[in-house]
Nucleic acid binder design. Structure first.
Length: 478
RNA sequence: CUGGGUGUGGCGCAGUUGGUAGCGCGCUACCUUGGGGUGGUAGAGGCCGCACGUUCAAGUCGUGUCACUCAGACCA
């Protein structure tokens, strides 16, 4: 870990929660608002979200999904049509009861998720197998009245995308569910530089109303998990509750099979907590609003700024996002500023460099300075951006590996949970009573998922000793 | 929801036995400096979260209230 240069950010070893808050503020990602749990996403933070959106949206569309927009209000009667679903969400709904000056005859829920709205619509547009599949997605805000909130990680209102699809067969819907989880997994790795555990949620941890929930569980730097995205298979439960039917090729009336999947602005929290260090944020190049911070040195001297603008425009022409900071802050101030903001590469350009037809490139991850010729600076920068990505992935892999433990006995499980932060791999009998027991005994360690590619660690449940059905990854979560 | 913390210029804080508000950063102007948060000079900026009460007098004491925040239990 690089030495700490900026006093304003609390060291992550000293107080991880405070470090997180400091980074959010100092990197100008978000600000608090007058309403509890609602945050202002500032331009720099929103630009990260836009990059995330752009990338994911392209991935969705490449697979045939279409964007739509559903209303933000859900009539109470509609929300109540699917029993498990309403039970899951009722405790955290915000309600509109007055319109203008009049009490509404039926109160309206501010959407916490939109399954019910989509179903209400699907009922009208699905009649024949020819109408299937329906592959819809929307980029919207949702509201969940959370008890305690933290910027990006848990906010009362957050931005996300929710995909909702309907299929003629169970097989196709199940395939879609897994396919979309794979999209998230690829996105996490390729765009966010976060390799992560993926798998299936246990019965207890499933989404309200779902038959299966698949999840991606990135591990934060401190070993705590974050539910990074989910993909649900609903079977035909909602279809039956909402009376959605279609006539199949064989002229029989059937219920379609449904999925939904989503990721949210919480991913920005994952970026912060996975890659950040004591100097602030570190952004993977693909989501970084600024990929190169170009810092002129002795910029008042003849020709320095002109050269800086020239280099910047060359880099822009090569498709690189560059900011020239020609403000009159000192170079040292600027170095710290863009480090806090996680800009992957810094380019220093002063009179000495210009004389030598070179510049200084600095990686945000290693903070090593290297001299680079201006002749092929586009290539030099590209290579450093690539190395930032590679190093981030490597660091996350190492952290994940070193903080993943195994336990085969109850005592070992408790000991690991108490003394080693991170994930614990352990066998499980399939009974949610054991999940409850382990959670109580450890003070919050829960099943994250049954990972794809389970290992066989032992024959019996780590908790009760009965025959094991699955290997489960356990951990604490945000 | 439970338990702790905090509300005083934009931000971070100080404010003693109650006596009418101060510091650092930031901001504005000018000079200086510039390869790791330069140094200086001069300025601007405050119903002390809100309400009620005690008092000749409240940032300070009392009661209430609101908000934010941290740690738990719940969720993306």
């Amino acid at each position: 870990m690089a030495e700490k240069k900026v006093e304003a950010i609390t060291s992550m070893d000293e107080d991880f929660a405070q470090w997180y808050t400091d980074v959010v503020k100092k990197a100008e990602l978000a600000d608090y608002s007058g309403v509890k749990g609602c945050m202002i996403i500032r331009p720099y933070g929103y630009a990260i979200w836009e990059n995330i959106q752009k990338d994911l949206d392209a991935r969705f569309k490449a697979l045939g999904h279409e964007n739509v927009y559903m209303p933000m209000f859900i009539p109470e009667s509609l929300l109540q049509k699917e029993k498990d679903h309403v039970e899951g969400f009722a405790p955290e709904c915000a309600w509109v009861t007055i319109g203008g000056e009049n009490e509404l005859t039926e109160r309206l829920c501010v959407r916490p998720t939109s399954e019910t709205l989509f179903c209400d619509h699907f009922k009208n547009v699905i009649h024949s197998y020819r109408d299937l599949p329906k592959l819809y997605n929307q980029w919207v805000n949702v509201v969940r009245w959370e008890k305690t909130t933290r910027p990006f990680l848990r906010t009362s209102e957050f931005l996300w995308q929710e995909g909702h699809t309907m299929h003629a067969t169970e097989e196709e819907a199940r395939k879609e569910t897994q396919q979309m989880l794979k999209v998230y997994e690829d996105f996490y790795l390729e765009t966010m530089a976060i390799p992560a555990v993926t798998g299936r949620k246990t019965e207890k941890e499933k989404f309200a109303g779902a038959m299966e929930t698949y999840t991606i569980e990135p591990m934060m730097h401190n070993g705590v998990a974050l539910q990074g995205g989910t993909s649900h298979y609903f079977g035909d439960g909602f279809a039956k509750a909402f009376d959605i039917t279609f006539t199949d090729k064989d002229n029989t009336v059937k219920y379609p099979h449904q999925t939904s999947w989503g990721v949210s602005t919480r991913m920005i929290g994952a970026l912060i907590m996975t890659h950040g260090d004591d100097n602030g944020l570190i952004l993977p190049p693909k989501v970084a609003p600024i990929q190169v911070a170009l810092i002129p040195v002795q910029q008042h001297k003849e020709g320095v700024l002109d050269k800086a603008y020239e280099v910047a425009s060359r880099l822009r022409a090569a498709g690189i996002r560059v900011k020239v900071d020609d403000s009159d802050n000192s170079p040292g101030w600027k170095f710290s500023e863009y480090e806090m903001k996680g800009v992957p590469v810094r380019l220093e350009l002063g009179p000495r460099d210009i004389e030598n037809n070179s510049c200084v490139l600095v990686s945000r991850v290693t903070r090593n300075k290297v001299f680079a010729s201006l002749d092929n600076i586009e290539q030099g920068v590209e290579e450093m951006l690539q190395s930032v990505y590679t190093e981030l992935v490597e660091r996350v892999r190492t952290n994940l590996a070193s903080k993943t433990h195994t336990a085969t006995t109850y005592e070992e499980f408790l000991d690991t949970a108490a003394n080693k932060p991170g994930f614990i791999k352990a066998m499980w009998c399939g009974d949610s009573a054991c999940e409850d027991k382990l959670k109580d005994a450890t003070g919050g360690v829960k099943s994250r998922c049954i990972p794809f590619g389970e290992e066989h660690l032992s024959d019996v449940c780590v908790c009760c000793g009965r025959p094991a059905k699955h290997m489960v990854v356990w951990g604490r979560q945000y």
